[in-house]
Amino acid sequence: MHEEVIISGFGGQGALFAGQLLTYAGLYEGRQVSWIPSYGPEMRGGTAHCTVILSDEPIGSPIVRNPTIAIVLNPASMDKYEPLVARGGILVVNTSLVRRPAQRSDITVVRVPANDLAYELGNVRMANVVLLGALLATKPIVSPDSVKRAMEEEIPAHRKHIIEPNKRALERGMQYVAEGR
């Protein structure tokens, strides 16, 4: 297997963290993994994205032009990455913020009102994990259990209270794709 995933949104939406969960999950499953953030003079409300590669082969370039998967959390990310997803790839869209339909017909588009679902679960900031769940229900590039393990092992001690809600957010995203609501 070889997947190249870009997760992109406003700074503060958790794009980088969702990418780290995916990377840890890949590591636990014995894949070759890399995670690289966009970095620069960043701030909350600016743009932030990361590239995650999961592969059975050693990873060369950690950056890619045409990812096999993109998760877009805001309109600017949709505009930037929809045209770049590789043919046959997957685009996961946060429709709570991205109102326009996708234009590509040669990729799988997964539409999820992630902010609304996360808000219903009690914290809008978990939209990132809802979208990650939606991706895994569409294509299980890692097992959800590995992502949950990453939450348990990598979320620092003073943030332990967010682990269980995030597990529910992951399941909610999966359920939304499986049941269409």
């Binding site: 990377t23 590591l27 890399s34 995670w35 690289i36 953030p37 990873i59």
Partner: peptide
């Protein structure tokens, strides 16, 4: 360089 400094790998 910045890429190696900023990226995460096992």
């Amino acid at each position: 360089d910045g890429m190696i400094g900023q990226m995460m790998e096992p």
